[in-house]
Write a protein that binds this DNA or RNA. Sequence first.
DNA 1: CGCCAGATTGATACACATCAATTCTCGTGG
DNA 2: CCACGAGAATTGATGTGTATCAATCTGGCG
Lengths: 238, 238
Amino acid sequence: MYAMTNAAGTSARTSLPMPRLAVAGARAAATEADPLERLCSTVKVERNRTIYFEGDEAAHYYRVRSGTVRLCKVTEDGRRQIAAFLTAGELFGWTDQDVYNYSAEAVTDVTVEKYSRARVEESVKASPSMGRRVLSLLSNQLASAQDHLLLLGRMTASERIATFLLDLVRRQRTAGNGGASIDLAMSRKDVADYLGLTVETVSRTMSALKRKGIIAFSEPEHVELKQNTTLARLAMAA
Amino acid sequence: MYAMTNAAGTSARTSLPMPRLAVAGARAAATEADPLERLCSTVKVERNRTIYFEGDEAAHYYRVRSGTVRLCKVTEDGRRQIAAFLTAGELFGWTDQDVYNYSAEAVTDVTVEKYSRARVEESVKASPSMGRRVLSLLSNQLASAQDHLLLLGRMTASERIATFLLDLVRRQRTAGNGGASIDLAMSRKDVADYLGLTVETVSRTMSALKRKGIIAFSEPEHVELKQNTTLARLAMAA
DNA sequence: CGCCAGATTGATACACATCAATTCTCGTGG
DNA sequence: CCACGAGAATTGATGTGTATCAATCTGGCG
């Protein structure tokens, strides 16, 4: 199962131990059973189904167990922006507001853990370490979103693609995979809506990178990074 | 030479050799001489001075007391993206990570309250309601960052301007002001870098709105909204 | 085999960037 | 008080990166 393919926020800052932050609480005293585990029910969602809609009452929090989830927003006239792709271990829907700000959809078939918000809040009240974890989560998501702002506001198409691909390997690598090859869980349209481009531009830009020998792919969903450094130079970053 | 911690577009070297005198006073005040408020010290920062740099160790949290602060990031070649403008009462620098993800700069002369991170964390541990507030703050910041993604990724210039102006009135109104008129604390360049446009496009777009009678202004920094509904239609939103 | 959705490639259009003058505002000094 | 300069804002002329419109091409599946 090639689930761990995706990209969420661009995360350049420190080499933080990627996902797992939900599981591997910062504090060492994690001996007791995770209180979260007792609060959740497991739900399967089919590819392209919506998990919740923007504007829905935020009654549940979620964690990805397997597959890829996208957070997105669509305008009346159909323009779509994807804020993040999420994979195993990552939390979503953890808002303080009373409704969700973004819709959550299954990119692939996914399994998610669903937590009653009320219960989680009790549990947070009971154990401060829980609160700490949620806070850490939100802080990371905020940092990713902010990095994404720079990408959408100021980067060229090829910089966006390069950044995206490098993000993917970085996340995949920390997830255990050692090679410089990526399995895209999402379509070109998804990539385009994540990067603020059109499908055509994504396709053209990737073809150009391929022509130059910087990346390689025969099926669209499996990409190999041939010249990591060239790609990194393209991605530029701050 | 040290006036340019902000330097708009002209290839402002974002590197470290920047004078940190904005913080110099504060750094000296590491003695925490304030006997009244044990957690915070008050710091004044001049217009266009940097409060902290992206990448600095995140040792302090902040709150705006007066003036306007911008959170921004600059690329090597001088492209700049502003993630947010903050005004009285708003918190910033509240990250869980060990370094700041974005620089914070004074748009106008500002007064900020500075909190020792370590102390705040103690205090959070002691009173869960504190943690709740920080969480709420981060949650809101995340939501607005995500909304900003849609703007940068999918909106046209006039939609961006309209959205921006409406945001400003909304925030100003909650701050007490009742009229449909706005005082821009920031320059056109700042607006441009917030909206992912160029100064020229911002200027042209606003002139166009003026010509159509949707807004009005004689000095660039004071704008009146004449046709709120037209503007709202332009802003579209989801 | 033929259909269909996704991906790629090509031709052209356009929104915004870029380059280039003014114009406006304000602070400074003669 | 006014000339002066400097930075910000506006306006104009032109360029260009990406969108849009329009064919193919490809692979999976009934």
